[in-house]
């Protein structure tokens, strides 16, 4: 963990999310992109589960979105926040949309540019916490001091990722079980997924048939 313990950092704990969309509703209240929400709340598979997961920009130390941008439209602030595309530069090619391993940037046709979460830079740069992490009623999103999170949460805060061969370090942390030190997402052939039907832990009918 490279962040200084007393510095404020952004944390996601997916296990806490209740899918209420307070983050989505609050994001569009942010003064830099009024009326437009830039956080993604994923419903994993409503038929099988009520599980949901919020996704803010992870603010990679070496942002892939910026690296693949042919127009050099995506800039990083000195404190490591990756910003939305610069309007005069963005050509709307969506390279960033395809390249981001977290699925964060989206091309917005209304304004003809890529828009994404900038960690509420207008707020965080003036000492306020991001909208989503302030209102989140479940604590799935938190903007807090690292030592406070270590003191009050179980598990481990990780910002080290591996997607296939790609290593990524992010400014945003996720909370994972203590034994995990890096989130590794291997390349999985689709055929193997079809073979292995995962168990169905959230089927109420199955729970009722237990002995």
């Amino acid at each position: 963990m490279s962040t200084v313990m007393s510095e404020l950092a952004f944390f996601i704990d997916y296990s806490r999310c209740i899918g209420c969309q307070a983050c989505v509703q609050a994001c569009e209240e942010c003064d830099t992109h009024r009326g437009r929400s830039l956080i993604h709340l994923e419903t994993i598979d409503r038929r099988d589960s009520v599980q949901t997961a919020p996704q803010v920009c992870m603010h990679c130390e070496d942002p892939i979105c910026a690296r693949v941008c042919p127009a050099d439209a995506i800039k990083q602030t000195p404190d490591g926040v990756v910003q939305s595309s610069l309007k005069p530069r963005c050509i709307g090619c969506s390279n960033c949309v395809l390249a981001c391993p977290f699925g964060v940037p989206k091309y917005d046709g209304d304004v003809d540019q890529m828009m994404k979460c900038d960690m509420c830079y207008d707020r965080t740069s003036t000492g306020r916490r991001p909208m989503c992490a302030t209102v989140c009623p479940s604590g799935a999103l938190a903007f807090a001091k690292v030592d406070e999170i270590m003191r009050t949460r179980q598990g481990r805060a990780v910002n080290d990722w591996q997607f296939g061969d790609e290593r990524v370090t992010t400014k945003v942390f996720v909370l994972v079980p203590t034994e995990v030190t890096r989130v590794a997402v291997p390349v999985i052939p689709l055929s193997s997924l079809r073979r292995r039907r995962p168990p169905d832990p959230y089927d109420v009918a199955a729970l009722l048939e237990a002995p």
């Binding site: 209420c20 307070a22 509703q25 209240e29 916490r129 909208m131 302030t134 209102v135 989140c136």
Partner: peptide
């Protein structure tokens, strides 16, 4: 519009979507 009220001890700025809107 609204601004979270983090000093209030019960919810410390937290809100649900109804509160936000």
């Amino acid at each position: 519009g609204f601004e979270p009220w983090e000093a209030f001890p019960f919810n410390r700025g937290k809100l649900c979507p109804k509160g936000v809107k």
